[in-house]
Design a protein around this nucleic acid. Structure first.
Lengths: 215, 215
DNA sequence: ACGGTTCAAGCACATTTGTGCTAAAAAGAT
DNA sequence: ATCTTTTTAGCACAAATGTGCTTGAACCGT
């Protein structure tokens, strides 16, 4: 009966426009009119696919979360498929961690958008739920990765949590710096930092009892 | 001749109002009218002390940078005054690193404001200069700290840079998580993560050549 | 051919924002 | 008491934003 348009594809186009605007001009410029312009549509058209500005933003947040989570899951299955302690395994781990960083154009856009939404979620309740989902999804993958990289710490669950959080913090910090101070953060520095962190993961275990950090 | 008002004190009051608004409602809500209301003034009064909205925001950014930098410098002189490898030294280092985290109300406000401005500076050219100053100031202290904690790496300057960046990234990531996911980030987790990182600093040096991350 | 449904576009209105400008109030100096 | 300068307050205007509502346009099934 009606004019048939692939609604989901259209929505995706609008979301891509949102991503471009956030990456170049920030979340606060992602208004309906700006998004419509960027997508080559009228405001009314955008509003036809998204009931409100909030729905558009929440959905865009969800899309970028899914993209990142999917990349991480795929990279993790690669890691799992490789023999541990092989050079390919180490490279696969670095590739996995690199999914967090703005190493190419697409990753940079996702990183910008992801950061912007997570920070906005601190203030805007509509984004809260997706922010929590985002954190759970990423923490799950990083947690599994840490468990794989520290097989000898099976008992010390507390240490696993600490190390997962530590890796997560380092990743987010690196991503932040790569976005905010790109002139100081070359690819090499990123790689060196990640390598150093991985070294610290496998080595630091037996040294815990040497120092007196028991408080 | 004129009505004498401590202009600098008034500016400071306005800046404090900006901080409160950013911490509770985000940078985008820090408009002249909101700030004036929060400060108990009229828009015209705020505009008397700050020529424009941009000047107000840039000055607020500068103030928070100075506050953080001052705290770091003071904490670092404490570290320098203590005998290395003593328990007090370790505590002083943890205290220094804790200055980055929202461990109390004042630190939390500063952390919020600092994060908000740094991210805004990616987009808004007026904030660029202060953002660069902020990064230089903090990187300087963290760099000196890393040099102190890794005395044996005197030659490997590249490694020092990597470790400084790694510590900085971990700190910023921890701060982010503490602000955005406070329910998952208790004080204890923060402390454990920082302790683990410090352990990894002093230990990881001799193990670099064991693995094949040379490529 | 045509009707009904979906899509696209736009108008109108209330809010909010930054800023230029004017003017009243306050208070020390004379 | 009066003058002068600072301080405070407010108005007005243009620009931008979200949203309710209306109007065409397009097109598939009958």
């Amino acid at each position: 009966m009606p004019k048939i348009v692939d609604a989901e594809a259209r929505r995706q186009e609008v979301v891509e426009a949102v991503f471009r605007i956030i990456a170049s001009d920030g979340l606060e410029r992602a208004s309906l009119r700006e998004v419509a312009d960027e997508a080559g549509l009228a405001v009314g058209s955008v509003r036809h696919y998204f009931a409100s500005s909030d729905e558009l933003l929440v959905h865009s947040f969800a899309v970028v979360i899914d993209r990142i989570a999917t990349r991480l899951e795929e990279a993790f299955t690669v890691v799992e498929s490789l023999d541990q302690a092989s050079a390919e395994h180490d490279n696969a781990v670095l590739t996995l961690l690199g999914q967090f960083l703005p190493l190419d154009e697409e990753l940079a856009v996702d990183a910008c958008v992801w950061m912007a939404f997570r920070h906005a979620a601190r203030i805007r309740p509509v984004l809260e739920e997706e922010a929590a989902r985002s954190h759970r999804a990423v923490a799950a993958v990083v947690g599994r990765l840490v468990m794989r990289l520290m097989p000898d710490a099976g008992t010390g669950q507390e240490r696993l949590v600490t190390e997962a959080e530590r890796l997560l913090a380092t990743l987010d910090g690196l991503c932040m710096h790569a976005l905010l101070q790109p002139e100081w953060m070359t690819f090499e520095v990123c790689r060196d930092v990640l390598s150093a962190h991985l070294d610290s993961l496998v080595v630091s275990r037996p040294t815990v009892n040497l120092k007196a950090h028991r408080e």
